[in-house]
Each structure stands twice: as structure tokens, then as C-alpha cells.
Design a binder for these strands. Structure first.
Length: 287
DNA sequence: ATGGTAGCCATGCTA
């Protein structure tokens, strides 16, 4: 069975890339984030083309920002939008979490709050959100996979230059502690423990992708019974290339049997290696 | 020293 997760940065804009990608990779279960659609708009745009490819779908979004979805060809049972104890932001519950049972595994499609700046109310919201999710998952089924844009790089090896991220979100100890506190297996890192530059996200700005200046923030966190079945785990970097890509690449995990080979996170060296370690973050505004 | 992109809905905010 193949599980994939992809922050598509607008499902509507990504439709010309998403549908051919589904045909090419044929994942059985797909977790999407940042659909930026309402449930009605997702249904109108995607129900028919997805059915043609054999997928059932469930979506949770309010339009504009956020929005998550689950697609499955192996069943989509007990769909739950949000999770027990999920915190609100500015008085509203955002479209950041949906889960369902697919072939016996409780699969969550998650879009963790960004956190914006360390110490902001959004950062506190992010930490609270992750803590509440851990409690909800602990009370749930033993066979579980948390898939999505966690907006946390679990270790320094998961960013192009730790020095560039000093004082920024995504790499702070409290964020990393909350990822670790799930007590789940980060299956891509477990499969490729020594590899550097296994990234899943590259900022659109400043040619970051072409220099391979990225981060690994899109994760599949699996409980041990699921992790024990992993036969392949990799980032589909090709989906970040070419015309009108998302700023994230999909993460693909095969259980029981590697589908089209165990494609590793083998990436070319940056086109301008001299800049590695000396490039400022695009979002950095302080001097 | 700064802006660099993309997408939303609106001409600013979010990432």
C-alpha cells in the first residue's frame, strides 16, 4: 500500500499537476494540505475527476487559507474533521486536520500552524495545537499515521543551514520537543538516517529550489506497527520541478512492498555550492 | 540594505 502526503498550495491552481501525478504514482491514500478551498468548492472541482481515478475523498476547509483533504482507493471510514481538544485561533476552528480509517490505519492529514515568529500568539497557538493533537492521537487507534505539513524541521540535518534559522520558527526546541513527544517514527528519516539535504519544501523566492536550499517539514509519523511495514520512503522531488509547482514536494511511503523501486532521497548538489551556508532566509527581515 | 514568489482576495495578508 502506498501513502502520500503533499502540501499543494491551492488545489485549484495545482489541478493540472495533481491529477497527472495521481495517475503516475497511483498512491492508495493521499493526504493534501493547503487546498485553500471550501468543502463545496472541493466537491465541485474534484469529486468527478477523482472518482474517475478510483478515489473517494473527504475535505475540510473554509476557503482562503488552510484546507486539508484525504483521498483513498482502499476505504475511507469514520471521517473526522478537526480532533478532540483542537484549539481555535482568533475564535475560529481552522481547517487544518482531517482523519479517516484506510485499510486499517488511522490516517491524519494535517496542516500544523506556521507559528510566524517565535513568541508570537501564532507560535503559542502552534505549540498548543501540537500538544492537543498528541493527546488526541494517544487516545486513538494503535495503528496510526500522522501525515502532512508539520511546519517543524525535526533536526538540524533537516534544514539547509541551521545558522540561517537561528531565532526563527520551525527549528526551536519547544517545536521539536512536541514532534518528538508524539512517540512516533519519522519514517523518511528512519529510512535514510545518514542523508543530508532530504528536503520537502523550498521557498519560491530567490531561486531556493535551484540551489537546493530547503527544509524537511512534510513528515509521515507512524506508530511502530505501521513503521515496521515500511518498504520505501522518499520525497518525490520531481513534482517540485517544472511549470507552476507547489512550493512543497510530496512524500511517498510504501508499506509491505516498494512499488516502483525504493527511490531514495538522492538529490543533485546545489548549482552554486558556494552560497550554501551563506544565504539569508527570504522571510528574514531583521538586520 | 533590500527584495526576491505565489496565492488568496483585494490592492494587504499569509506563507
Amino acid at each position: 500500500m502506498r501513502i502520500a502526503t503533499w502540501n499543494v498550495n491551492s488545489a485549484k491552481q495545482r489541478m493540472p499537476r495533481l491529477l497527472p501525478w495521481l495517475e503516475a504514482r497511483r498512491p492508495d491514500v493521499v493526504c493534501l494540505q493547503e487546498t485553500k478551498l471550501t468543502d463545496d468548492a472541493f466537491t465541485d472541482l474534484f469529486t468527478a475527476p477523482l472518482a474517475e481515478l478510483g478515489y473517494e475523498a473527504a475535505h475540510h476547509g473554509l476557503g482562503g487559507f488552510n484546507g486539508v483533504a484525504l483521498l483513498s482507493r482502499v476505504g475511507l471510514g469514520d471521517v473526522e474533521r478537526n480532533f478532540a481538544g483542537q484549539p481555535d485561533y482568533l475564535g475560529a476552528t481552522e481547517g487544518r486536520a482531517i482523519s479517516a480509517t484506510c485499510a486499517g490505519i488511522r490516517v491524519h492529514s494535517l496542516y500544523v500552524p506556521n507559528g510566524r515568529t517565535v513568541g508570537s500568539d501564532h507560535y503559542d497557538y502552534k505549540l498548543e495545537w501540537l500538544g492537543a493533537l498528541a493527546a488526541a492521537v494517544k487516545a486513538g487507534p494503535a495503528e496510526v499515521a500522522l501525515c502532512g505539513d508539520m511546519n517543524v524541521a525535526p533536526a538540524d540535518a533537516d534544514v539547509f543551514d541551521p545558522a540561517a534559522y537561528l531565532g526563527h520558527t520551525h527549528v526551536t526546541e519547544p517545536e521539536r520537543a512536541r514532534i518528538a513527544a508524539f512517540g512516533l517514527v519519522d519514517v523518511v528519516r528512519a529510512r535514510w538516517p545518514e542523508h543530508e539535504r532530504v528536503f520537502s519544501y523550498w521557498d519560491y523566492r530567490a531561486g531556493m529550489f535551484h540551489q537546493d536550499l530547503g527544509m524537511r517539514i512534510d513528515l509521515v509519523l507512524a506508530s511502530q506497527p505501521v513503521a515496521d511495514r515500511v518498504a520505501a520512503a522518499w520525497v518525490d522531488r520531481a513534482a517540485r520541478k517544472g511549470k507552476a509547482p507547489s512550493d512543497h514536494a510530496p512524500v511517498i511511503v510504501d508499506l509491505d512492498e516498494a512499488r516502483d523501486g525504493d527511490i531514495g532521497p538522492v538529490v543533485p548538489p546545489p548549482s552554486n555550492p558556494k552560497r550554501v551556508g551563506s544565504t539569508r532566509l527570504p522571510q528574514s527581515r531583521e538586520r
